[in-house]
Amino acid sequence: MRYASLLLVLGFATGCAVRYPAVVPMREQQFRSHDQAVALPLDQEGRGEVANFLEHGGNRFGRNAAPDAQAAGHKQMLDALAAEGNLKIRASLATPDFCAIALPLCQAAPILRKRMAVTQVIDARNRQPEVPDPIAVCDDEYCWIFRQSNNLLTHLVVVRSVRRLQP
């Protein structure tokens, strides 16, 4: 009887939709802010590169400026990433809550609040998955992919998100 129920569970489990983990891909060159992640805290040059990327709708080679619906939030984000104190994280917290991991950054950049931390970042340029895992967090249109080490965010690439908002 016990194993009949187990068979039933197995059948049911395979029939139901599988919930896949959140994954952030490293986008093509056109849709990522940098080829090599920029060091944090952001200096003027790094900030300018990210800002330019965002001002062109996440198209690094774009010729036309595009309105950024989250411009105010992104400005706060760039300001926050220029301050070393905002880069401290608690990397050993087993939580999907990005703000629990990166509280100082979230306090300075509210655009990140109630967003999920994603550690499954796919970068096909790499020989194998990075260790330690990057930490990515996505706002409505962009994903901010951080490298981290010793409980500090150390590098950043911004990519145009592949997810689309619900219409």
């Binding site: 959140a22 050993s92 931390a117 550690t119 981290q148």
Partner: peptide
């Protein structure tokens, strides 16, 4: 269940040099 691998990442970060 840890649906998004946050537990595995947390362990990896906490034991960074061994995992590296």
């Amino acid at each position: 269940l840890d649906p998004n691998a946050n537990a595995a990442s947390a362990i990896q970060n906490d034991q960074a040099s061994l995992l590296a």
